[in-house]
């Protein structure tokens, strides 16, 4: 259900299509960012705090990973009983790309 199916983009000149393909290409799998988890409030401490994750991953993946690390119900809704903030300032949308968040907050 990507937008590429839309008629808008099928009629573009080849060079424009090529430029768009490069601009929207996902980052390579080995392009990773480092995340440090810090527990606040009643959140339990993690044994290991620093992890690396693909920069193209969505923030929802980080939250799901953290649920697993904390032994929380994986089937539960991502935000249920667990709140994650970037630099203790804001909670990004679960569909925000980790690489973009890293670029504006590290």
């Amino acid at each position: 259900m990507a937008l590429t199916t839309s008629i808008l983009l099928t009629s573009l000149p080849p060079d424009v299509t090529a430029a768009l393909a490069i601009a929207t290409a996902p980052p390579p799998q080995n392009d990773k960012v480092t995340i440090r988890f810090q527990s606040i409030g009643n959140a339990p401490m993690l044994k290991r705090k620093v992890f690396r994750i693909s920069s193209g991953a969505k923030f929802g993946k980080v939250v799901a990973f953290l649920r697993k690390q904390l032994g929380m119900d994986e089937g539960g809704a991502p935000g249920e009983g667990l709140w994650c903030y970037v630099n203790q300032s804001f909670a990004p949308g679960l569909d925000a790309e980790v690489g973009g968040l890293w670029r504006v907050s590290s």
């Binding site: 937008l3 590429t4 983009l9 601009a23 929207t24 968040l101 504006v104």
Partner: peptide
């Protein structure tokens, strides 16, 4: 926001 994948680009 870029078309096609609705990719969002952020930078400082």
């Amino acid at each position: 926001y870029l078309p096609s994948a609705a990719k969002v680009v952020q930078k400082l």
